[in-house]
Amino acid sequence: MTVLASSSSSSPLQFWGYFMDHRSEDLGWLWDHTWLSVLPVVIGLLIALPLGWLARRYRWVYPPMMSITGLLYTIPSIALFVLIPPIFGLGALDPKQVPIALTIYSVALLVRVVADGLASVSDETIQAATAIGYKPVGRLFRVELPIAVPVITAGLRVALVANVSIVAVAGTIGMSNLGQLFTQGFQQSTPDAYYPPIVLGIVLCVLLALVLDLSVQALNRLLTPWRRAVRT
């Protein structure tokens, strides 16, 4: 009986019990993981909006800007994490290095998305908006950006889901987030495999990615009421 009990406690399906036993710690990591995934995308979008607008407004800016952002996106996440501190003059292990690296990735991804989203606005629409009296700034915020929302939110979904996975990588260099569950499970797996924390980490990461993805889709619906009006 005791053998059965001990083997079932390390079974992968015991992750819920593990979660209940370490609730406050796990919820803390979940919260860290959430803001580390979301905040860089928000800041990244705020930086990418003017850059994307520039790339759309001045066509010669587009090719070099896409080369630079493509280059940034090429750098593996773990390498970018350790390269941030010397570039920004931080200590070698600084909690700020993860959000900074993720912001760089988000900007690199979203500049192209914003530029392509603004390019998806048809010339007729822009001419019509100008004809009914919109000045360039008002036209940008009240006509062009709203029409670009579906393209931009599609980019946000990609960025958020990618971030959830990359934040877990930061756990391997000791940053506090759900990646710690993998470190814990790995350390507790000698000599025998101990699955609950690892499975819990994977489940929470997938759920977080799912929830973030669904909230961006909800945001998209909220911001583009006219698309529903057309469909029904």
């Binding site: 889901v161 996975s165 756990g171 499970g185 790995f186 690892i198 994977i202 990461c205 997938v206």
Partner: peptide
């Protein structure tokens, strides 16, 4: 599959 955290799957398969 892309929604899976790579590190988690790597650790899971390794301890298995």
């Amino acid at each position: 599959l892309r929604a899976l955290p790579t590190v988690g799957v790597l650790v899971l398969l390794t301890v298995m």
